[in-house]
Amino acid sequence: MSAAQTYRSTAARSRARAAVPGRTPASPPWRAAKGVLLLICCLLVIVPFLSIVATSLADNEQVTEAGGFVLWPERPSFAAYSAVLAGGVVTRALAVSVGVTVAGTALALLSSITLAYGLSRPGTFGHRPVLMILLFSLLFTPGVIPSYLLIKQLGLINSYWSLILPTMVNAFNVIVLRAFFMGLPRELLDAARIDGANALQILRRIVVPLSRAAIAVVGLFYAVSFWNAFFNAMLYMNESESWPMQLVLRTYVVNNAAIGAGEVSVAGAALPPSYALQAAILVLSIVPIVVVYPFLQRHLRKGVMIGAVKG
């Protein structure tokens, strides 16, 4: 009896105070130490980031004097942002990026979930060879030229599909997803099967709902990779009108780095873009992700809730 009492009281206490329900809370000094450590970690990240934001708002004089990033804009202005957004190139590219990211992530999740699900039961027909094909695709990267020739053969040059299809299935993501799927309680799947559910129904009604956290993470991985991708667009999109944001921004930031000593004389072009401009670009390219991430985080938490509900 006493064991049961202890159990109940521990459970109650932990539900009240611990981040993870059911977990014994840590001792105060340990918690404090951890808090301080995390605070330091956060500061190490926040300070440079605030400095990037501050630089994007600073004027040229201050930036030049500081020789790069500043910690606080003395005379804040949005000049850098209006310079980047002038001419509508970046806004147009933003639309392209959002479109490609949304469509790409949706298609990628669809094909990756089905692929991972198809591989989630060892011993089924074709399981081993398909898994190996997937695994080896991580280890060998095709060359740029053959990929280009393929896209050209398929008639996808200058088509947005060329930005989605080649990167739609990432073996790493599929393998991770598969691992999560395989971790689902088997009894549940078997029970559903005995009840006459077919494979598709099991996927839709059990596997996907129970794997929300994993799907959210993999979705985030895909979304970020579509969002950050510029290389395929550089190869396959000849019209700068249909470039995604990252490629457009590249002409602001990376080109600057490409201008070495003496190169400017030969190029006869271009002041190096100011640090404020570069910082503004960084902020612009990160903002959408910062906006989207909390929505995904909700799914990560849901996983916790599922575990908690049944206690």
């Binding site: 280009y148 550089m234 190869l235 000849n238 002409t251 990376v254 080109n255």
Partner: peptide
């Protein structure tokens, strides 16, 4: 067809290999 200078050395051979 504008290519960022940093990517030009990559794109030229690819376009040449493509033949168009």
């Amino acid at each position: 067809e504008i290519v960022p200078i940093a990517d030009y050395p990559t794109k030229v051979p690819v376009v040449i290999a493509g033949g168009d």
